[in-house]
């Protein structure tokens, strides 16, 4: 046990002041100390992608980063996708296209896809497949996830253009 550190994590626009050991991974801090359990922990060694969140402007695996390293950086988790009662286009597309069954991998896929589509709205099929291949899903066989992300890509395009 080492001394705990005070730090503030800014998650989905809200500050969370927490006190954690430096060895605490970002995903554990998000779930246990900030109470945001939407981000899931799978393999804890950077293989499954379930814990993907957006730190700064990049999708990262939050099991491969310490909470202290995220100090001062905006963090986005799956809880920040919906606007009030309106689901994010990706969330709706995952429902429409049956992109989930048990839902364990879904937060990771959603944050990865959100980051990729925001940065690269015109991403091609091949690159999209390459990007999505980083996360594991044991239920869907992936095809419906790919369909959902492609469908959301269409819906997200005008929004991205309007925001510019």
């Amino acid at each position: 046990m080492t001394e705990k550190t005070d730090l503030t994590l800014r998650i989905n626009g809200r500050d969370h002041s927490i006190r954690v050991e430096p060895r605490k991974t970002l995903v554990d801090a998000i779930r246990e100390d900030c109470g945001l359990t939407g981000t899931h922990i799978g393999c804890e060694h950077g293989v499954c992608g379930a814990c993907t969140v957006i730190v700064g402007h990049e999708a990262v695996r939050s099991c491969l980063m310490f909470a202290v390293q995220a100090r001062g950086k905006p963090i986005r988790t799956v809880e920040g996708l919906a606007q009030g009662n309106t689901l994010h286009p990706l969330q709706r597309a995952f429902m429409t296209h049956h992109g989930l069954q048990c839902g364990f991998c879904t937060p990771g896929f959603l944050m990865l896809a959100a980051n990729v589509l925001e940065k690269n709205p015109d991403i091609g099929d091949e690159e999209l497949l390459d990007v999505l291949s980083s996360n594991l899903c044991r239920c869907t066989g992936y095809q419906n996830i790919i369909k959902a992300v492609r469908a959301a890509q269409e819906e997200m395009k005008p929004k991205v253009a309007a925001a510019e």
Partner: peptide
């Protein structure tokens, strides 16, 4: 090398 998320870090 790895995947998008790991290349980011």
């Amino acid at each position: 090398i790895g995947h998008r998320q790991t290349r980011n870090r």
